[in-house]
Amino acid sequence: MSDPAVVAADEPELEQIVTGKQDKPRSLGSDAWHELRRKPTFLISLILILIVVAMALFPGLFTHVSPTAADLNHARGGPSAQAWFGYDVQGSDVYARAIYGTRASLLVGVFATLGTVLIGGIVGIVAGFYGRWTDSLLARFADIFAGMPFVLGAIVIMLTLNAPGSNPGETRILSQVVFSIAVLSWPVAMRIMRAATLVAKQQDYVKAARGLGAGPLRIIFRHLLPNTVAPVMVYATIALGANIGAEATLAYLGIGLRPPVVSWGVMISDARDYVAAAPHILLFPAAFVSVTVLAFVMLGDAVRDAFDPKSR
């Protein structure tokens, strides 16, 4: 606004939008969608995410090799025409394992992040908005979880839920992994949300809304949330990658997913001792994690920008 050149460049386009669809009031949501559809980063990240989701849902479309078939003759064999990504320590096809590992990794990554952000976001906005003793109570409660080291906390939770020696199914382990990650990492999201809410709550537009007679729900959803969600979203995109890694940590400790279930995290932790001898065993699953995280980061960025009218 302070830069005249920017205003001048903006003006004709705006004028056109305003006069062109003059009779249709638009909302932030429809403006954001209009903006997103033309954004290359959004489209690229969306395509990448769709591919990853397709791999998770229908791994058979991408490979005919079984991820569990192993031939020790091929152990640590490099990439070739038979196995594009080479073979791992057990002589299994790395490509097939990476494809079949998508489902568990994506489920853990997405749902643990969703859980973290939802629990943290709700508790954070409630603590920030209501303040006083509600805030003190919720903040101390969050400190209990934040104070627990992740690995220790996860071991306690997983061993409590599964008696040692038991052999729970894949779905059960997956949901327990998601649960332990979400329960142990929501305080971070809560603090980010609380801080953002405390700032937004002081703004005059909240005062004006209260003066108009707006109730707490309207203030939270209409005025606070749109202005506080951005920093939490940035955290979420980072947390997504970290959560896929956290699943690997639990697998390595023997309390997470276990064979024959495959995940990128399991593959990375299997490859750990052979990095120098056979780097491809580590690099390919790591690349899958990186590209997936990158796609979500780009998506988060694009969505955040689209919902900030000032960045248009």
């Binding site: 638009r26 537009y205 005062k207």
Partner: peptide
């Protein structure tokens, strides 16, 4: 500058 929610249109 702070009395109007930056994420709402004038109509809203």
């Amino acid at each position: 500058y702070t009395s109007l929610n930056p994420r709402m249109t004038v109509g809203d």
